[in-house]
Amino acid sequence: MKDTKYSIFVIGFILLYFLVGMITGFLGANQIFPFSAWDLFEDIPNRRNDYGVIIMSYNGKIVSPPKLFQDSKDITPEYGSIIAYRLIQNFGKAYDRSDIQEAERLRAIFEANYMKAPARYSLVKLVYDPVERWKTGKYETAYIRVFSVRSEAL
């Protein structure tokens, strides 16, 4: 008779991981690290309703024309950070649902980690078709609010 307790433990662990991951995924709940739904790139973004940060001035200089954070290669070396992008999305969503406390908390993290100098920027809503925007650069914007970092006012 084989000792099966290790096999049963392993199968139980795998089953637990699967169930917790799938249930949190279906409920749209926050993932409990290290569990995960693994719902990565699960759908095709036909038309994006995103949030963006448009930098208007940085470190005492006017940015003309104002640039999206992701296009600000000459302003911040972290322009391509996907973490910054996700942070901006959560920041924008919190503002949109009027959860000001959460929005301010996320804003503080964004500014502390990605806006190292005095700056002025707008939080905007972006609407676009990804392939069309990639080819033509076209997107629609709607301004939500303008913010100043460390009293940059121009």
């Binding site: 973004p45 992701q70 290669k73 992008y85 392939v131 925007r133």
Partner: peptide, 13 residues
């Protein structure tokens, strides 16, 4: 095409 374009727009890369 959509996945690649979308991701690259998010990172500006």
């Amino acid at each position: 095409s959509y996945q690649v374009a979308d991701r690259l727009l998010q990172t500006g890369r």
